[in-house]
Nucleic acid binder design. Sequence first.
DNA 1: TTCCATCCGTAAAACGTTTTAAGATCTGGA
DNA 2: TCCAGATCTTAAAACGTTTTACGGATGGAA
Lengths: 352, 352
Amino acid sequence: MPQPSDPAPRRVTIRDVAARAGVSIATVSRVLGGTYPPAPATRSKVMRAVHDLDYVANPHARALSGAASKTIAIVLNSVVSPYYAHVAQGVQAEAARHDRLCLIGITGGDAARELATVRLMREEGADAVILVGNVVDDDGYKTRMAEYASALAAAGSQLVLCGRPSLGPGGPSVNVEFDNVGGARAATSHLLSAGHERILYLGNRVGYTTSEGRIAGYREALTAFGVAHDPGLEVEGTWERAEGYRLMRSRLRSGPPDFTAVFAANDQVAAGALKALRENGLRVPDDISMIGYDDLPPADDIGLTTVHVPHEELGRTAARMVLERGSGGGEHVMLGTHIVVRDSVRPLARKR
Amino acid sequence: MPQPSDPAPRRVTIRDVAARAGVSIATVSRVLGGTYPPAPATRSKVMRAVHDLDYVANPHARALSGAASKTIAIVLNSVVSPYYAHVAQGVQAEAARHDRLCLIGITGGDAARELATVRLMREEGADAVILVGNVVDDDGYKTRMAEYASALAAAGSQLVLCGRPSLGPGGPSVNVEFDNVGGARAATSHLLSAGHERILYLGNRVGYTTSEGRIAGYREALTAFGVAHDPGLEVEGTWERAEGYRLMRSRLRSGPPDFTAVFAANDQVAAGALKALRENGLRVPDDISMIGYDDLPPADDIGLTTVHVPHEELGRTAARMVLERGSGGGEHVMLGTHIVVRDSVRPLARKR
DNA sequence: TTCCATCCGTAAAACGTTTTAAGATCTGGA
DNA sequence: TCCAGATCTTAAAACGTTTTACGGATGGAA
């Protein structure tokens, strides 16, 4: 146990430990490193000294001399978004279990800052760099990621893509995703089964991979139920609450609703849309059914039926893959999603 | 500009830069360190070489040799709570502005883990360690904090307490707080002005400093308005949403409400209580008025009138105080709070 | 008893920087 | 012309660890 009362603890070096144990510093390092276990007697002498002196190795010296750095980096767009926060929580929890420190970098979704952050993390010597979240899968994306991956690999580190498209099987990165298509299909089917056929999809964020997956699921379900696909029901927009509000309000302004249900791209958008509906005298689920995606804090507050995404599990898995598995690379995990039924969907009384 | 295409960039050391510039490594270090500016000619030669080689100093070597480490640490109870997330966001933003990396440690509110994390951050050589949030101000607290502060000071670092009680004027730590008492007084006064006298205080978390501040403000306002203080209206509880729900539900079970307004200790509790009220056929604000505290995401979703706490500003200020001011210590800043009016308070029709 | 193999421990080099103390070059005044 | 002083540069030590290459015991076999 650490002594909480050491007043100004002059750094205890490995030299001190060696002196106290009556051995050389290399021996101490070996005992601590776990490699090549020396004579049990020596070992216990050293351990005792370590304990007595409450010695902790200097992480910088350790990193400098080329040892693994006990740090795992996570790069996010933002911490205030519950999506990222929960993933980060998972990573952090798993990292802590393995005595790893967590370095968090924030990019604001900007590719240049992402690059800078990844470089920084490499300099810092992180065991692995976990890149989280939604991104535009344009021409440059895969190239950029492959560059990150090889730069990190060259530095003895590793790239993990979390909730982002993989670089393909056998690619240079570890990959953890969740099932956007399946979840969206399930959500849409849920509405269709309740008799809804005019389903407004709110928040089609063209190009962004997560969004593409969700809308694909939406379309698949429509097809499976033999319902005609009306492009006019797919509304483009970003994924903030305010956007959901704006979109729904302007939609309602142009006339009475031409839909009986709403599938919001995420819970925040759903929350915004809900507010706009209420302001227009429409009640959920009495007048309009609504379903969201993510199952993050706003969802429970507003009684929203939604698709549960295991965010924390996502982070934990990402961390576990690099900490427990060998640094194989090319691994790929897809986590499942499922519907959480609350109180925002009601069967359509009669078909039109 | 970094070259995004370097395939496996063997580390560029300061030695390489020195060689290319035709000077010694010490000169390079000086030029980069900004101290003691050498001859302009030398300076530009070095800068050119640095640019050509795209050199970045190894942070570990830098830290090892005793320089400031360009890292600022933040210690939180949790990242998923919006409260902490917003503060972290502020710290991170300010740190990025100063080219600082952000190290985040999570304690789960456990004192032992807090100790361990602070030690770790000290080992890591952080410029400053920012401790955020609610805590029990028991006998040990000030002692513990003073120990952290001196241990950090001995390592050339600095302790910042953010939203926690100060160690007293001239103490060894920098301190940033926000006005819990004032905000609670304003909120309560807002209800009192609307004619409410029976105000239920929900979430009195005895011992926790933030909570103590808020309930003190509540009592002060009652006194100022000459309204008798009924201890039966102060309900103990934690600060989660589920707790708010539970407390309100059990309160309503024991009979019709003996209050006309609710002051929830924070927005999450308010959200929970709101749900319980609704389930019991009571409408906000028609039947019961409600006010919260924090102005974090749930508040806007549910149209809650609440007290705005400048969380991000709190984090930014904390970071700025250590990054811009000299490392004076003993500084203390109190940020203001103010009411945000939404739609959860209505004047009481007639006095009883 | 002598020699060889086997372990275990140690000294020393390396990691990449900062910084101190000292060396080299130059300017200007006597 | 020479020297004091100022100015700029450099060599070398230090930071705390890991690790490679080596030396010294220790034990068993011949």
